[in-house]
Each structure stands twice: as C-alpha cells, then as structure tokens.
Amino acid sequence: MDAIDERKYLRLNRFPTIWCPGCGIGIVLGAIIRAVARLGLDKDEVAMVSGIGCSSRMVGYVDFNTIHATHGRALAFATGLKLARPEMRVIVVMGDGDALAIGGNHFIQAARRNIDLTAIVINNSIYGMTGGQYAPTTPRGATATTAPYGNLEPPFDIPALAASAGAPFVARSTVYHAIELDRFIERGLRKKGFSVIEVLSDCPVFYGALNEMGSAVDMLRWYRDNTISVREAGKGEGKLVRGVLVDRDLPEYTEGYQRLVESLRGKGEG
C-alpha cells in the first residue's frame, strides 16, 4: 500500500486540536483521511458536516468544505447540501449524544430515506464536552456525572437501530482496531446510500475516570478484549460484535430524485 501523506488533507495551522490527551477522536480523524485518500477524492468534492460536541470539532481540522452545524442537526444540514450538490461526497461526523439523543430522529429518518451520506458515529458512551453526563449510549449501571448512583437506562445498539431504520451499510469498529476502521470507513464511503460506521472511542477523562477504567491505553485494551469480529461472533459471549454488519443494495434518495426530475423533463412548467 502506498504511503499516505495525511497532512495534505489537514488544516495544519488549526492544530493543536482541542481534544484531551489520550482521546480516541484523533484516530478516527486519521482513518477518515486515509479512506478519502485511498478513494482518490478531490478535496473540493468532499464536505464534512458535524454537529456539536468533542467529535464535531473535527471539521475545523480537515481541508474540505466544512460545516460545524447545530447540536443534533448535522444530518439535516447534510441532507440539504447533498441534494443541492449530489456530486459531492458528504461525510457526517457525530458524537453518540449528538447523533442519537438530540439528533435521534434525524438519524433514523436519514437511514429510512437512504440518502447518500457517510455517517460516522464516534461513540464514547458519554457527553465529554459538557463534563461527563450520561448519554443514550451509556451502559446500564455505568457511572456518569449525572448518574452518580449508576445509570438506570439501557444503551442504544447503534448498528441494530441503523439497520432496522433502513441503512444499506452498517459497520462497527473501535479506535483500537485502527486498520479495520480505515477499511470500514473506506467501504462506507464507497457505498451509494446512507452508511453508518459506529466507532467505539475512549474518553479517558470522563467515562474512563468515572468508571475506573484506567488510562487511555487501558481503555484501548478493553476494546481489544471485550469486542469480537463478526466472523467469530459465536465464540465470545457478552462481547460487542465488530464488523460490517449490513451491506445491501437499496434505492438511494438523490438518485431517485434525479430520476424523477429526468422523467418530468419536457412536461413543462405548470
């Protein structure tokens, strides 16, 4: 494999990033850039749209067309942009709270509509930027700033949610499995339609500290030991399954819209 110069795709004058030492988001940033590079995409034809939160600050560091939108609304902003510019590759980067709490409706509707966006959900199981509050992805019983006695709620299974809402491509990986992650994001970008890649990512400062998971390295080891590839799924009871969990062909929205416009051509302006 040819060496990729990630710097070509970064706004280096915006560095250093706001992310805490040991945070997993930078690994996801690297994976996205390598996927874009491997596909040979022109930076002008790539847009990155995000919402609000730690992971959403990624848009500031990449040399694409970038929108740091409002909390939870990245997919809706991206839907408008994609329909205005169907030729563009639109990558949507969201945190778990952004995508599934405040933005949960947009998430399932975008999956149902099957619009050609690549949605990357960076799941650190907590609200990091606001100080460690529990999220719809926090495991039952885990501690959070606002769940001092343990979280009473069960977490979303993001791939299952995306799949049942209609997404044609759904994958899950972690920031420990960096090479696998590169590949999944690349496949998601290649897929015509709404692709969802959930990335389990460590927040050593809040989730890790509140739940006594040790250092960032310890948390990466936790991902290594507590997840299992879908190919071996039967062998690891209680482990989170990684892999490309859904890959199917379904009618895509912008193509459907363009076909509609074509079919109406010549019918005149009412």
Partner: peptide, 28 residues
C-alpha cells in the same frame, strides 16, 4: 421537480430549516 429544483418534506421543522441552510451553502 418540473424545473429541476428540489422539494423535500423533512421529519420536522428543525430539520427543514437545517436542510435549507445546507442547500443554500450548496448554492441554491
């Protein structure tokens, strides 16, 4: 659609104005 423009019914009004802003950045 007759004029090559885009109409979409979104999931709520928040999404509607968000899509409008995204499309405007796309040049429409």
């Amino acid at each position: 659609p007759l004029r090559g423009g885009v109409f979409i019914q979104m999931e709520d009004e928040i999404a509607s104005i968000a899509a409008v802003i995204g499309a405007s950045l796309g040049g429409l």
